[in-house]
């Protein structure tokens, strides 16, 4: 019987400093992962936390981590060559097969771009699989911008309509305002069929979803990714439970029509 709580060590290949508080760690890993899934990352003595897969390549996965507390600070102290303990991947991914052949809207804020980035890269590399992709990526200010290189790549992709925006400052190549301010630019009413993926802080997801609905999107086309306190990620510890739903098992990605009926 496999031990679902036991992590295995994986070697860190490189560390990229995206911003002051966000680093991307590239870690040796061979198995399959799906868009929107996460791993439990840990370091001995400190603890364990759920972190989304933000990048994937031959023999590695990437995690983009924001330094917010004990564990994340601990991970920031690691160097290439050090070991990171991992178990996973966990969680229901975005239903990417259903997104194919349609229009896709991706709205993300800050580190919220991490869980959708592998999906964005996939469609950027296989543009024939979608009609169009509207990306609205919001950051607090210019110092908080993540994934600069990839954002440039997305902007060059003809099928992509990429809007990057800063909350309340301006910079070349960036719009100003919250992501919600840019949602009216998405021509929902012209789409034959579409999906919307929203990832970010809870308040941002809430208002972005409402704004989409206001602009003609329908509930069951919208997908959100929940962030919940998790200790086990395998349906045992109870921390992530909302009503009868376990976010680690049935989520973190939920259709909005289900998500709006989860009462915390």
């Amino acid at each position: 019987m496999t031990n679902i709580m036991l992590p295995t060590p994986h070697r860190i290949l490189s560390v990229l400093k995206e911003t002051q508080a966000e680093y991307t760690f590239r870690v040796e890993y061979d198995g399959p992962t799906q868009h929107g899934q996460f791993f439990q990352l840990s370091i001995p003595k400190v603890g364990e936390a759920p972190i989304s897969v933000s990048g994937k390549g031959e023999g590695y996965v990437e995690f983009t981590i924001r330094k917010v507390g004990r564990l994340t600070q601990g991970i920031f102290g690691l160097q290439p060559g050090d070991m990171l303990f991992m178990r996973g991947p966990y969680g229901k991914p975005f239903p990417v097969d259903d997104f194919k052949g349609k229009d896709l809207v991706v709205i993300c804020g800050g580190t919220g771009m991490a869980p959708v980035k592998t999906m964005l890269n996939h469609f950027c590399d296989h543009p024939e699989e979608i009609n169009s992709l509207y990306l609205i990526a919001g950051f607090k200010d210019i110092n908080c911008v993540l994934f600069t290189e990839e954002l440039e790549k997305f902007k060059r992709q003809e099928k992509f309509h990429t809007i990057t925006t800063l909350d309340n400052s301006s910079a070349p190549g960036f719009e100003t305002g919250m992501v919600t301010a840019h949602i009216p630019k998405v021509p929902f009413r012209d789409f034959a069929d579409y999906n919307v993926a929203i990832v970010g802080p809870p308040v941002m997801m809430h208002f972005a979803a409402l704004e989409c609905l206001k602009n003609g999107a329908v509930e069951d086309k919208i997908w959100v990714s929940f962030e919940r306190k998790m200790s086990c990620a395998v349906g045992k510890c109870g921390h992530c439970k909302i009503n009868e739903t376990y976010v680690c098992l049935e989520g973190p990605v939920f259709n909005y029509s289900r998500a709006k009926n989860l009462f915390d």
Binding site: S42, K45, S231, K236
Partner: peptide
């Protein structure tokens, strides 16, 4: 009630040896 927390225990500040436990928690 079945909920728990996971907790890391260290034996000594300077070494990386330690253990991970799970401990009953409470909603």
């Amino acid at each position: 009630c079945s909920c728990f927390d996971t907790v890391d225990i260290i034996y000594d500040e300077t070494s990386r040896d330690g253990e991970r436990r799970r401990v009953w928690s409470s909603c």
